[in-house]
Write a protein that binds this DNA or RNA. Structure first.
Lengths: 197, 197
DNA sequence: GCGTATAATTACACATCGTTCAATAAAATA
DNA sequence: TATTTTATTGAACGATGTGTAATTATACGC
């Protein structure tokens, strides 16, 4: 088995996380297992628990990594400089989810116990992605309606999210919808227009 | 243990289904277990498998029951005769999900293997709910845009679904949104207005 | 370099899960 | 009543998350 000298604690943490992320991408939330991660990196199951404490916390970290990746992707796409930035946002949302269905779905498959709040760090991640979107939406609104940007951003993310979820789970295919992304973009445009954008 | 004379096959099936539905409502998808259902009705785990074949099929049936309940609720609300029928639809969607969070979420937590299609019977259920919504949307559109009703219905269901999901999973609470239902209704209204409704 | 204290790692145990299936009990039939 | 058919059981299997005692490797003091 692996020796202490092989990795520092931080390196081991990163190793587990990277392999966990890969496993999640490959098998999805339902088939993810800490034991499988351990097997793949050549450590025993106990080590995973020594480093992460529980499956729950490992899942949080795996999903956190996905979220970072997602946010980075969104930023890169925006920075590419396409003129239609709203389209870039919607395509960024859909594009990441479609390219990484298991990773993206895992974010929403893993539920926190209703009582407890999401740890600060993860709340901040969520807020950051919303912040990027909100900034773009604010740009499209007239100054008189700037105060609408925050609630509208949340609501439009939910709109796109719903379309994205239906696309990935096959609900749209079942109903004969062939262009979920186009539908989402159309809805977003309509709401922005209604807000004076 | 229970004897054959206690129930006909159909009654036993109904007994399992009813108890399974109750368990799902109580504990949610993640904690649902066929063994627990067996324990609660006083049969052994083997009997569950004799009747339903697999956990997967039992889950389908439980979710199917939820879907029927949901559709009935929507129809009843519409039949109550409130003038603003679009509002009734959105409130029906939210109302059922909020009143039965575990049951409603289980519908979307239980995924079919990507290859296989949902059995005919369940496809029809889905189509029926969409049909009810589509009919109402068609009524709000001018005759010239009647052809938009079908894709618009699918898209607006996704819109409301996204808001509902964010509400139940706590995403909206995290972002400070206090009226997800109101936001969903506003988005629906904007899109209907854009279509000439 | 040796021995000890500290940290990392493992191996095992436990309870749970879905699933299968030979054995058993009950009912139906002849 | 004897026999066949059907219903039901519960033990077995492999896998899961999760603790913890035991073991091993490293670090440190001398």
């Amino acid at each position: 088995m692996a020796r202490r000298s092989d990795h520092t604690r931080a390196e081991l943490e990163e190793l587990i996380l990277a392999e966990g992320h890969a496993l999640m991408a490959q098998t999805g939330y339902a088939r993810f297992s800490a034991r499988e991660v351990a097997k793949r990196i050549g450590y025993s199951i106990g080590t995973i628990y020594n480093v992460f404490g529980s499956l729950d916390r490992l899942l949080m970290r795996v999903n956190s990594r996905t979220f970072t990746l997602w946010t980075d992707t969104m930023r890169e796409r925006l920075d590419a400089g396409a003129p239609d930035r709203i389209r870039v946002l919607v395509e960024g949302y859909f594009g990441f989810a479609t390219a990484n269905p298991n990773l993206w779905m895992a974010i929403y498959d893993h539920r926190i116990a209703p009582g407890e709040a999401l740890p600060e760090r993860y709340q901040a991640q969520r807020a950051e992605l919303i912040g990027i979107i909100e900034a773009e939406i604010r740009r499209t609104l007239p100054a008189a309606h700037a105060d609408r940007a925050t609630p509208l951003a949340r609501s439009l993310v939910a709109t796109v999210h719903g379309h994205c979820m239906f696309a990935l789970t096959g609900t749209f295919a079942l109903l004969g919808e062939t262009d979920p992304q186009g539908a989402a973009l159309a809805r977003v445009r309509e709401s922005l227009a209604a807000a004076g954008g």
